[in-house]
Design a protein around this nucleic acid. Sequence first.
DNA 1: GTATGCTTTCGGC
DNA 2: TTACGGCCGAAAGCATAC
Length: 363
Amino acid sequence: MLVDLDYFYAQLEEKRNPSIKDKPVVVCVYSGRGEDSGAVATANYIAREYGVRSGIPIALAKKRLKESKDAVFLPMDREYYESVSDRIMGIFRVYADSFEQVGIDEAYLDVTQRVQGDFDEAKELACRIKNSVKEQEGLTFSVGVGPNKLIAKIAADSQKPDGLTVVRPEEVQVFLSPLPAGRIIGIGGKTAKRMEEMGINTVSDLANHDIQGLIETFGRVLGTYFHNASLGVDDSPVQERGEVESISRIATLKENTRDLDLIMEKANELCQDVYAKLVERGLTFKSVGIVVIMKDLTVHSRSKTFDTPMNQLDIVKRSAKELFEKFLNESTNEARRVGVRLSSLGKEEKIQKHITEFLGSSS
DNA sequence: GTATGCTTTCGGC
DNA sequence: TTACGGCCGAAAGCATAC
């Protein structure tokens, strides 16, 4: 089954301050540029009735909520959301044979063993988990129960908030066929549009489309995945996620610029932040990457990889500077936002320390 | 021909 | 009228190694 916490950030803000729960609530990421510069992270269902959605500019959300008068705009408080998420995930985990957290507000629970493959029992279990989280944290979430992760996810999406949708194996075909292809995870706006151009609108259109054609258009991995998904077939296991694979920070510049010094002023802060997180988790990095979002919102990235694991702040800063400098030489536009990313992460261990010391002392 | 690793882009939340 | 975040993982596309 898939569990998905309802309008998570906004629900937490309602919980923290119940007086706002009958008003439109919009949780915002302010960029620090101007009064309303930034984007919407999420909004409660009252705000959604006004057309407020994740990702739209805050100024646009304000315009859409102009006549509601009592709309509440709050800044995102990520640390708080993460701490509550950790507690709730701890509750979910107890009910699962195996557990896989996806993002801050979603998780897959394989409960096959403990309900002995019985979907009625799975439904009862879902109710018990709902009650438990309601009692302990005062929060609601939506559940999808299905024969695999793909179906569980779509089932959960089909009834929100506080939903509970069960799709039994014999119901999969009827459930899936009429849905828009975009309901399949991995088919976002861009892919949906390409499919539309191929005459694919519903999952049933996708199921009837030649698999070779899909592979030619979307590549082997995705083409095969889309074909199987259209038939409700998915054998990916519910498995615990390991260490994070990358640590990144991105921020909006005070003003658009292509001045390396101004960019590095901000970038050095970002380097320190990602480095602090790296040390906190006891990790090393092999790759340093930068990302630049230009004033026209196009996204560009560059990265460099070392032969051995690294663990020094200075390396991060110097690599970032080198990459920004190189990138500026290749572009003519002004930068609006810049980011720093560490990847190819590894655990800091004795052997790696020795290698670092050896290289450090011999050079 | 297959496996593996690196760079960049895509897109979910 | 326009307006525009900050993360993350996955995949394509390419190069290289065996």
